[in-house]
Design a protein around this nucleic acid. Structure first.
Lengths: 313, 313
DNA sequence: TTGTAGGCGTTATCAG
DNA sequence: CTGATAACGCCTACAA
């Protein structure tokens, strides 16, 4: 086209306020320029951060984000049906949820690109955190400080995700074993991801006849509750009890919580990048899990054990 | 249609796995069954909760949620252009952002229904929190306890939202005046919405020659920092300093923070309901602000002032 | 009640 | 390289 004509047309379009109809466009091209994200309820810090990572990766890509949250287990089937429709989206990101096998099969047939984030399936590509390594690193840190009695406050399995998640416990156990340490009865427990639950759990642990001197906690949220509960009972942290959290939420730095940092936003970003790569054809999706490493952040809630408590007046 | 035939067809459709193409459908009907939500970055607790409210209201409505976040001020114009395209969405929810006038005008012409949530514009319907009343209620509470020197830690204006938001300060000032109380120099300050900033602000307030005995804080997040900073400096809460937060986040209950509860999720829900009403034609949108009331939640961070500190060894 | 012929706005294809 | 034309899949309206 002659550049002059081109300019004239563009100017006219601008003047008349012409805007191509995105729906008609999607219809004709058979591409919606849309990515569907399925996520368990938006309330949890982790999922919000993952979304933010996804959003970042997509921000200069012209893809539109459709969000579907699964609040109740009953929504699961219907939501997956809807969002994994290749007519609807160009790609799908499934966050923190393991899609039913039926969906996975249909997905495979339709060649709709899918990436799992913070969940796994043998036939699908995924990006996950290495909770096993994280728990192991936390144990290792305590062991290095000289602890021998180390407890674990794990999180309950996610009711929305039927896959039992024992990675943290596996890491804890194998590292304990590697250090030649015992895991007495009652040293492992699981609670919901709330400060209250963390508080109760630590109280239970401290009530054991031979209580732990250090405790690995599955989340900072639970750990914060544990910290507060210990303080209320006159158990000093870290002198009497060392605590290691997980995630490194904003408050963790503020409270001086030693924790294992989870690159959560990165998780979302990597998932989205994988999907984008598949969409522009630059990289093929492979059905395997990418495990992002976590890193111990040493602050002030851990110290060597066994300094006899000086007693309180 | 004969019910028998109907059943046969439905069965056949089911068997063949027929699924109407949603894009073609939207194209033909000229309705996308989509609601666009524009929101400042997803990181803030408030916006996430609002989204959750929106999601709840929409959950049994068959509308699909498209989310656009505005991370940088530069995205503003472009994002508003895109999402306020009547071909793209059936309705728009604008959260925490005041749309530029040009957009408002185009919106009016296109008759695309829009509701503002947690922001206002004279020509658009909106749902907002009554921060003015909240600040007033907080002051009233402190006054009732006998405080005379009451400070305000406000939040900085949102850089993404050019409209200066002085509602809290207005409520504070008018209530102070109504109680016949002075607002000395330095009693009002604004900080970012982080615990660190809240901590610094309270330190500044306490360093005044005639420091306040009570402080109204614009958010629980800031208040938590203030609490911690006070404690670190040996200022007891509530004996030496009363603190009132705002929002009532989860942690607030846990920490015993007296605060003014903001029905944030309700905010999103109401906004979405308004929009849904307009979409199904049951209620017309009126360009006025609905102010949701906030409620004082009395816990343990406020007490009468002036009990002389017993001194510390 | 059933069948059929446009039309929606864009893109892609294929002659000219 | 330009310009006309047939899809795209569904919906509505009208005719049989």
């Amino acid at each position: 086209v002659a550049p002059q004509t081109r300019a004239r047309v563009l100017a006219a379009a601008e003047r008349l306020g012409y805007r191509p109809n995105p729906v008609a466009r999607a219809f004709a091209r058979r591409r919606t320029h849309t990515i569907e994200v399925v996520v368990p309820l938006l309330s949890a810090y982790v999922y919000v951060e993952i979304l933010r990572g996804i959003e970042q990766a997509l921000s200069d890509s012209n893809y539109t984000l459709v969000i579907r949250t699964i609040e109740h287990a009953a929504d699961r089937a219907r939501t997956f049906e809807v969002c994994c429709d290749p007519d609807r989206a160009d790609g799908v990101l499934i966050v923190g949820l393991r899609p039913p096998d039926a969906v996975v099969q249909r997905l495979g047939r339709s060649r709709l690109p899918v990436v799992l984030v913070e969940s796994e399936h043998p036939d699908l590509p995924s990006v996950v955190l290495d909770y096993e390594a994280a728990a192991a690193a936390a144990v290792r840190h305590c062991v290095a400080l000289g602890h021998q009695r180390i407890g674990l406050i794990d999180r309950d399995d996610d009711p929305l995700n039927p896959t039992p998640d024992s990675r943290r416990r596996d890491g804890y156990r194998s590292e304990m074993q590697a250090a030649g340490l015992d895991v007495p009865n009652g040293y492992e427990c699981t609670t919901p991801m709330t400060p209250q639950a963390g508080a109760e759990a630590v109280v239970d642990l401290l009530a054991l006849s031979d209580p732990p001197t250090a405790v690995i906690v599955a989340s900072d949220v639970q750990a914060i509750g544990a910290l507060e509960a210990a303080r209320r009972r006159g158990v000093r942290v870290p002198e009497d009890l060392s605590v290691v959290g997980n995630h490194d939420i904003e408050l963790a730095e503020y409270l001086g919580l030693t924790t294992v940092r989870a690159p959560i936003r990165e998780l979302g970003r990597r998932g989205a990048e994988l999907l984008l790569g598949a969409l522009d054809g630059s990289t093929a999706l492979e059905p395997r899990a990418i495990r992002l490493p976590m890193q111990l952040v040493v602050r002030t809630t851990c110290s060597p054990p066994g300094q006899p408590s000086p007693g309180r007046s």
